[in-house]
Simulated scan of single mutants.
Amino acid sequence: MALSVENHPGERPPVIVVMGVSGVGKTTVARLLAERLGLPYAEADDFHPAANIAKMSAGTPLDDHDREPWLRALGDWLGGRSRLGEGGVVTCSALKRRYRDTLRAACPDAFFLHLSGGQDLVHDRLAHRVGHFMPTSLLDSQFAALEPLGTDERGIVLDVGPGPETLVEKAAALFGHVNGDLA
């Protein structure tokens, strides 16, 4: 059973962006974390306009112009969750600082959970993924674009090596949820 943060008065539910390059496990970790914390979950891919999906499916990386409406829509979702005091977990590559700045402009209390892994490991995972529009040919461009979290950004980097369940335990502990209870 998921622990619902709304059952604990005085605790403001977190608004979390699970970020990283394609193939690090953002969707798996974000879904498990949202369930664990009793928060709504949203998949960033669902916010892409059809033109973006077609472009990526064709093996063409998105440019900043393509990403702008997508990031604004994600920011609106995050900001709405925060204003309602309901919290939420969303996936988003959030590769560049300016992308995270766009999200923070709409939701200043966003917390970034950066899932990180070596390029060989991530490439292997991406190569074995079925039913996703992101081709492995675009992975190099994502690693090239990645700007790690700055020391002034609310967030943490977690290595994806230990697996999703361990990552969720570590993340839940950050928000005071250990073994299903508040710490």
Rank of each mutant, 00 (worst) to 15 (best):
S4M: 07
E6L: 14
P9E: 09
V15E: 03
I16S: 09
V17Q: 11
V21W: 11
S22D: 03
G23W: 13
G25I: 13
K26C: 12
T28Y: 12
V29E: 08
A30H: 01
L33V: 12
L33Y: 04
L37E: 07
E43V: 12
H48N: 14
P49C: 02
K55G: 04
M56K: 05
T60E: 06
L62N: 08
D63P: 00
P69M: 13
G75D: 15
G75K: 15
W77N: 07
L78N: 00
R83F: 01
G87T: 10
G87W: 08
G88D: 06
T91Q: 04
A94C: 10
L95V: 06
L95W: 14
L95E: 03
K96G: 06
K96Y: 08
D101Q: 15
L103V: 14
F111D: 01
F112C: 02
Q119W: 00
D124V: 00
R125F: 06
R125L: 05
R125C: 02
H128Q: 15
R129T: 08
P135M: 01
L138A: 06
S141R: 10
L149P: 00
V157H: 14
V160Y: 08
G163S: 08
P164N: 03
L167C: 11
A171L: 12
A173N: 07
L174R: 13
V178E: 09
N179R: 13
